[in-house]
Design a protein around this nucleic acid. Structure first.
Lengths: 298, 298
DNA sequence: GAATCCATTTCAGCAAAACTGAAATATCGG
DNA sequence: CCGATATTTCAGTTTTGCTGAAATGGATTC
């Protein structure tokens, strides 16, 4: 059966008008070109050129030339795209992230990443840790950035960095002037505004504090608005507090347990696409210098 | 560089879900499939299947699969078309013919021809012999059917058949009852309506008769109308008289010179397209039983 | 019209690629 | 964990396609 190679040879000879130049362009000897061409004509059962000097096509040659040129163009394009996909230079990545990372870390990283890869499409969904986990689990997104999943499902978690919690209060709050890390006892008697991230802190004293809190909110925007309005104080990961307005203050906590682990979540047993791999590498590189790291598998 | 073969192997394995079935379909041994696939993955630099049991694709595999399937479909189609063109099952033929052949011989022949070749397009132009010759000479049509060209241009003529002239007169004409071929002398004193075809007759007696005629017309329709109106008689090739109405009669001529040669005209030095060749063969077959034949080259 | 030049084809040998069959290895379902 | 089945590995062989040298063939020049 006729393959791509004879078509390519024929098209080159036809457009060069002679075998010698076509041979040069294809990095072959004229004899190789001659033989391939002859074989092609034999396969077709009819001559493609009018004379031995390959400078005039037969009617058949003209028709085959049109078709062959199109085939080659499409073939080469498609193959280039396949290679680009495989090399991670082309493709689509859907990723989900918790809002803090989506807002503080990813914008710059992704912009940077896409600048050097014109064929890439990235779709970013931001939702809470639970949402990220289920989006990865059901295959809606390939890559998730969130806290480690609690239940050992078919998800694979790798820690990117650990993010220490900070107490967020109004800048006119009595604690705001403290220059030393806070202890849980410092928070006694205050109204703590609960949130999902803080509830995951693995310190008994902290859990007790939050358990007693009457107020809870979900988004960072709401939490900060409540704090600003004097409704209480709250605990947020450092990353969520980096762009804090002047009327609010974020204070470090002394307890080393007051951290949230942030990492990437992949579906177990699925090897990541090249684009995904590239983003992972970029993420690891970007977070290499951020606090303590580690590796967990669940 | 990656060729078509690995793509085909990959697509088959991916859609079969296992190597063994793909091997059967491709008429290869499983080991050949396995090796080709491995080589393909190596070339791409990333795995296409999730596990060794080839029943689940990676993200990359899915993307490559889509593209590869499209490439293969287009490639196979295009190649099939090229082969069809080469075999004369597909293509376009433009041909010019003198009206008598176009009207009496070609319709049935072409209809028949096209019925068995769905991919074919034939364009038929009917004009006089001179017109046919110039259409072939300037490349507007590939094939012409007409009288032999007088000037030895770069045209190639092959006789298809010889068409004897007949005298066309009204059925109530005195000669209409004659049961024997006519001689030029029988026409003495009659008004002969001249026409291009008759003027090419290579008999001195005939030339003399026509030279003395005061009336000349070009199309068969006009000639017959003139005869019917009693304006005179005319000489037409037999083929132009086969569908004559009852009020007109066509009488054979005795002079063996009273014939018109009809044949195919091709541009010299151009090998005919497969479609053209097929039509030529069909034409020769159709005219094999028609009167005397011969071969001339001009 | 012969001589010469340049391109193409032919041919023999060679190298690389691809295939096969057998044996080893891995995976799945009970 | 075992047997059945699928896949991979391996060595050897066939096939394919390429090269370089020599022959052929067409043009061009003298």
């Amino acid at each position: 059966m006729i393959g791509i190679a004879p078509l390519r040879v024929f098209v080159h000879v036809a457009s060069c008008g002679n075998i010698r130049d076509a041979a040069t362009r294809l990095h072959r000897t004229p004899s190789a070109i001659s033989m391939t061409l002859k074989q092609f004509e034999t396969d077709l059962g009819a001559p493609l050129f009018e004379s031995d000097r390959k400078n005039r096509l037969t009617k058949l040659g003209e028709e085959v030339f049109e078709t062959a040129r199109d085939v080659l163009r499409e073939h080469d394009q498609a193959l280039e795209r396949i290679e680009a996909v495989a090399a991670g230079r082309h493709g689509r990545l859907r990723l989900a992230s918790v809002p803090s990372v989506a807002a503080e870390l990813l914008p710059h990283l992704l912009a940077d990443f896409l600048d050097t890869r014109p064929g890439l499409t990235v779709e970013l969904i931001d939702t809470d840790s639970g949402g990220v986990q289920s989006l990865v689990a059901d295959g809606t997104v390939e890559l998730g950035i969130a806290a480690p999943p609690k239940d050992a499902s078919d998800l694979h978690f790798t820690t990117l960095f650990q993010d220490p919690f900070r107490l967020v209060c109004r800048s006119d709050h009595p604690l705001a002037e403290r220059r030393t890390p806070l202890h849980w006892s410092d928070l006694a008697g205050m109204r703590i505004i609960g949130n999902d991230a803080a509830e995951a802190i693995d310190a008994a004293a902290c859990r007790a504090l939050i358990a007693g809190s009457a107020l809870k909110a979900r988004s960072v925007i709401s939490l900060l608005a409540l704090v600003r309005a004097g409704a209480g104080v709250t605990l947020l990961p450092r990353l969520a507090t980096v762009s804090l307005a002047a009327d609010l203050t974020a204070l470090p906590m002394a307890d080393p347990l007051a951290v949230r682990k942030v990492g990437v979540i992949l579906r177990d047993g699925r090897s990541p696409s090249p684009v995904c791999k590239a983003v992972l590498a970029r993420l690891e590189q970007a977070t290499a210098n951020v606090l303590s790291k580690g590796q967990d598998v669940s």
